[in-house]
Computed example of a mutant assay.
Amino acid sequence: MSEKFLEELEEIIVLLRASGTKKFDYSSSTTTVHLTFADVAETPPSPTALASAEEMTQVSSPGIGYVHFVQPGTEHPLIELGAAVTRDQTIAIVAFDSIFMSVKSPVSGKIADLHVVEGQRVGYDDLIATVTP
């Protein structure tokens, strides 16, 4: 399968999940795709988890591409786990071909968690990092 096909499929999956679709089938002369989305039972969070979650800000990918925590063309890291960041500071770059999308922190705080690794492929709105005040 081509990378373009996989990217388009990823976009379709995001749309299907958002619409609440449970099953999707597609077939052509060269490709067959069967998708089934399982219901995931949600466990109510504890009061402690709720308080902690309110203090955390999740930072997501602005598009499809590969995550970089190093400034392109240099060896300078943009951020590291535990680093202090300011609002609108670029914390990562999502690159696809010659398109570079900055991932900016929406709040000032500290990088509490990195949910992806350098060079990992991400889709639109995939979780990249968590920032705490």
Rank of each mutant, 00 (worst) to 15 (best):
S108D: 04
T86Q: 08
G63I: 10
Q120K: 11
I111L: 08
S105R: 03
L114N: 00
D97E: 14
P47E: 12
D113T: 03
G73W: 10
E118Q: 13
P47M: 06
G65T: 14
M101F: 07
S61I: 04
T86D: 01
A84V: 13
M101Q: 12
E75C: 11
H115T: 10
S61R: 02
I91N: 01
M101P: 05
A95W: 01
P62Q: 07
H76Y: 15
P47Y: 13
E42S: 11
S105W: 01
P77A: 13
P44E: 14
V94W: 06
A112C: 01
A53W: 11
V116M: 01
P47I: 09
V117L: 10
F37D: 05
H76D: 15
S98R: 13
Y124D: 07
S61W: 02
D126H: 06
S46Y: 12
A49T: 09
V70C: 08
D97L: 14
G119A: 07
V103Y: 01
A95N: 06
I93G: 12
V103S: 05
I99P: 00
L78V: 15
S52Q: 07
T48V: 12
G63S: 09
R121C: 09
I79V: 15
A41P: 00
V67S: 00
A51L: 15
P62D: 09
I93T: 11
G63F: 06
T86P: 00
S52D: 07
A49R: 09
P47V: 12
L81R: 07
S46M: 00
V117D: 05
G109A: 06
T48D: 07
K110L: 07
E42H: 07
L81F: 13
V85S: 11
M56H: 11
V107M: 04
F96I: 08
K104R: 13
I128Y: 08
A53P: 00
A41G: 12
T74M: 10
S102G: 04
A112N: 06
A53R: 13
M101E: 12
F37G: 01
D97T: 09
V122C: 09
